[in-house]
């Protein structure tokens, strides 16, 4: 177990995630022909949110959000500590469930529809995430991230090109980027306003923001795992992938839920399952 990376993750992931969000907003603005906010704007926003009154429909909403944050830190923690990859996936799922529950607690029609859409999104990306775990296991013969990351073996992506592409596809859903920003988008311009986060203000919205920063760093870590044992290359590729996601976000209209679910399943079946089949037959 690598305690150092664990501490580094817990302490610096929000910083890195916030910076990424700031760079994201800046690049998005430039792509749209605007100047955009300062790079540190996400931090200013969150600080401002914490100075506001916590106005919620039900107090339990905030409790769920705290659980959302706690489980996300826990998930990222075990990932960066080099523990079991299966556990990472299941606790990530649990963390997201808390967000859905919090949205249902808001009892507003917007957040209720948002929560339903979030469940559909989970349904859309979960098969591919499971294929990701299976693929990594088949290529490295272990679930332990530390072993995967440190053992000298050929780079995992050489065995998993299909899973890599499929994972990129669902990463767009996870990062809440167009065309798959159904349940909530970065801009409140949607038929369901802000979707699952509509009913949150002040500190609880700030907590959601911080949780997303943790989540994004975790997701980028999962991308870089494809390049194990060369993790520096992996980190570089993960950042490039993030830039690609910003580009995709700016070049697509929002899809409907039907397209999101079915296309993700087709991608999971063809790229994910196909890759695993190939590994079983020829690996």
């Amino acid at each position: 177990m690598d305690t150092l990376t664990l501490i580094l993750y817990v302490a610096f992931a929000p910083l890195l995630g916030g910076l990424l969000a700031g760079v994201d907003r800046r690049i998005t603005a430039r792509m749209q022909g605007r100047f955009g906010p300062p790079i540190l704007q996400p931090f200013y926003d969150v600080v401002k949110l914490f100075n506001k009154e916590n106005l919620v429909v039900r107090r339990s909403q905030t409790v769920y959000i705290i659980f959302f944050l706690a489980f996300m830190v826990f998930t990222g923690g075990i990932f960066y500590a080099g523990e079991d990859l299966l556990l990472v996936i299941f606790s990530l799922m649990l963390a997201n469930t808390f967000l859905v529950l919090a949205a249902y607690k808001g009892s507003s029609p917007y957040s209720a529809i948002g929560a339903e859409r979030e469940l559909l999104q989970i349904m859309a990306y979960e098969p591919m995430v499971l294929f990701y775990v299976v693929g990594i296991y088949m290529a490295s013969k272990t679930f332990y991230i530390e072993t995967i990351a440190t053992t000298q073996h050929p780079m995992l992506i050489r065995f998993l090109p299909g899973i890599f592409l499929g994972f990129l596809y669902v990463l767009t859903i996870k990062l809440r980027k167009s065309p798959f920003d159904l349940s909530t988008s970065h801009h409140g311009h949607q038929e369901i306003v802000k979707g699952i986060t509509t009913e949150f203000t002040g500190p609880s919205l700030g907590l959601i923001e911080i949780t997303h920063w943790y989540e994004n760093v975790l997701l980028l870590g999962m991308v870089s795992l494809f390049f194990a044992p060369n993790l520096w290359l992996g980190a570089g590729v993960a950042l490039a992938i993030y830039l690609l996601e910003i580009f995709i976000d700016n070049a697509c209209a929002r899809a409907r839920w039907q397209f999101t679910v079915f296309s993700s399943w087709v991608v999971a079946a063809v790229l994910g399952f196909g890759n695993i089949l190939a590994l079983t037959l020829f690996g």
Partner: peptide, 16 residues
């Protein structure tokens, strides 16, 4: 309409 179907950069460029 671009904003209505969630295409923010198209919205900005139309208005530019």
């Amino acid at each position: 309409i671009a904003d209505a179907f969630g295409f923010e950069s198209l919205f900005m460029h139309s208005w530019r």
